[in-house]
C-alpha cells in the first residue's frame, strides 16, 4: 500500500505533459495572433476565430467522451468509467461556455451582435444548460451507481444534439457561418496558413482538454475510493466518533 502523499502525487507523465502544454499554447497564440495573415474581409478579427472554433470543436469532443464513458458505465457498471465521464463532463461544460464567450467576442465586431437565437446558437445554449443539469443531477443523487446511471443518460442526450449543432448552419438558415472544412473531403474554404493555424490551435486545445480530463479523473478515483470507504464505515460497526477517514 502506498502512503497518502505518494498516492496524491501527480505522476511523472502528467507533469511532463503539463509542462509541454505551456510552450505549445504560446506557439498556438503566436500562430494565431502574429503569423496568420489577415482575412480579406475581417482583417485582424479573423484571429478570434482560431480560439473560438478550436475550443468549440474540442468542446464537442469532450461532450462525446462524456457520453461514451457514460455509456460504458451503463454497460459494464465500472466506477472507473463514471469517474472518467464526470471528469470529461467538467471540461465539456468549461469548453462549451468558452465557446459562447468566444463566439460573442467574435460575433459583436463581425456580425454586429453579441447574440441571436438562430439554430446553431440556440443548440449551443441548450448544450450548456444540459451540461449544467448534468452536474445538478450528480450533486442530487447520493448513491454512486444511480448517480452514474442517471447522469450518463443526460450525457447521451447532450451528445445526441451534437450532429444537429455541428450541421446546424447547413440544415437551417442561421446567422452563424457554415463550416469551412467539410469532413467528407469536398473542400476547405480557408487559406492554407489559416487552416494550419486553426488545426494547430485545435490540437493544442485538445491536448489541454485531455490533460485536465486525465488529471481530474485521477483525483476522481481518489474521491471515489474515499466515498466507498466512508460508505463501508457507515454500514459496518458504528465508527468511533468523528468518522475521520484517512486517504
Amino acid at each position: 500500500m502506498m502512503d497518502a502523499s505518494e498516492r496524491l502525487r501527480r505522476p511523472a507523465y502528467l507533469r511532463i505533459w503539463g509542462a509541454l502544454l505551456v510552450p505549445l499554447f504560446l506557439a498556438a497564440a503566436y500562430l494565431g495572433l502574429v503569423w496568420s495573415p489577415q482575412d480579406v474581409n475581417q482583417g485582424n478579427l479573423i484571429r478570434i476565430m482560431y480560439a473560438h472554433v478550436s475550443v468549440a470543436w474540442i468542446g464537442f469532443v469532450a461532450v462525446g467522451f462524456t457520453a461514451l464513458f457514460g455509456a460504458l458505465f451503463l454497460w459494464r457498471g465500472k466506477r472507473r468509467d463514471d469517474v472518467l465521464a464526470a471528469a470529461s463532463g467538467e471540461m465539456a461544460l468549461l469548453y462549451s461556455s468558452l465557446t459562447i464567450i468566444g463566439g460573442m467576442t467574435y460575433s459583436r465586431p463581425t456580425l454586429n451582435t453579441f447574440w441571436t437565437w438562430d439554430a446553431k446558437l440556440t443548440l449551443t445554449a441548450l448544450m450548456v444548460a444540459l451540461l449544467v443539469g448534468y452536474f445538478i443531477v450528480r450533486a442530487l443523487v447520493d448513491d454512486p451507481v444511480r448517480r452514474g446511471r442517471v447522469s450518463a443518460v443526460v450525457a447521451i442526450v447532450v451528445a445526441a444534439s451534437l450532429p444537429f449543432n455541428y450541421l446546424a448552419a447547413e440544415w437551417f438558415r442561421t446567422l452563424h457561418p457554415s463550416r469551412s472544412i467539410a469532413l467528407d473531403g469536398s473542400g476547405v474554404t480557408m487559406a492554407p496558413e489559416m487552416l494550419f493555424t486553426l488545426l494547430f490551435t485545435t490540437v493544442v486545445a485538445g491536448l489541454i482538454y485531455a490533460w485536465f480530463m486525465v488529471d481530474r479523473a485521477r483525483l476522481g478515483h481518489i474521491e471515489a475510493q474515499l466515498e466507498a470507504e466512508r460508505a463501508k464505515r457507515e454500514l459496518g460497526a458504528a465508527p468511533s466518533a468523528g468518522g475521520v477517514v484517512r486517504v
Binding site: 495573415p37 456580425l111 441571436t116
Partner: peptide
C-alpha cells in the same frame, strides 16, 4: 432597427482580392 452581417464561411488572405458573389449568394 437591427442590421446583422451574415458573412460566408470563406476565409482568405487579402492578396486574393476579389469577392465571389456567387459563393456569398450560396451561403
Amino acid at each position: 432597427d437591427n442590421l446583422l452581417i451574415k458573412h460566408s464561411e470563406v476565409y482568405e488572405a487579402p492578396e486574393d482580392g476579389h469577392i465571389d458573389v456567387e459563393e456569398l449568394r450560396r451561403s
